[in-house]
Nucleic acid binder design. Structure first.
Length: 154
DNA sequence: GCCAACGTTGGC
DNA sequence: GCCAACGTTGGC
């Protein structure tokens, strides 16, 4: 199967890449957007590669990579009344929200900041850089992946 | 901290 | 089915 590339956004005060490094792998939960849900449920496959992006808090940047180790499965936080991600309209029989498991790939030698990505020609069409793009799970093209890795490994 | 852009909800 | 109101996201 063809390998795909994705970008996962994370707020570093919630789950920074350093935490993924400590945990080794993690279930990517808390996604509550239908488009992102569909991607996680239907498109993200074991072996796919993930760009790890820190949003909201400076410096906003791609900070490393991860690998998908388990494809979409129901997000348990939707059933947990105590979780802030609890969804009363979801049931075990008909889950609404999905997540995948990822493991750390690498932490970049240096973060590739958003400002820097805007300067890179290879990234002109990147979903992340489009105006108003708010998707927390989004596709990345091979050439975008390659360009960012090259910059991050410098 | 602010504000524009966006997605979702709910009333009609 | 439409759309205004609302809450959230994300960049600055």
């Amino acid at each position: 199967m063809k390998k795909n590339y994705w970008l996962f956004k994370s707020e570093p005060d919630v789950y920074p890449i350093e935490q993924l490094a400590k945990d080794g792998s993690t279930f990517w939960d808390g996604i509550r957007n239908y488009q992102a849900r569909n991607t996680l449920r239907d498109d993200v496959q074991v072996g796919d590669e993930v760009l790890y992006y820190h949003s909201r808090i400076a410096p906003m940047a791609a900070v490393g990579t991860a690998r998908v180790v388990r494809a979409g499965s129901p997000d348990p936080t939707q059933f947990d009344k105590k979780s802030k991600y609890y969804d009363e309209k979801a049931s075990e029989e008909e889950p609404r929200w999905y997540g995948v498991d990822i493991e750390l790939g690498e932490i970049f030698a240096r973060p590739v900041t958003l400002a820097e990505m805007r300067e890179m020609k290879a990234l002109a069409d990147m979903v992340l850089l489009q105006k108003g793009s708010r998707l927390s799970i989004q596709p990345v093209r091979k050439k975008e992946w390659t360009a960012i890795l090259k910059a991050g490994r410098k």
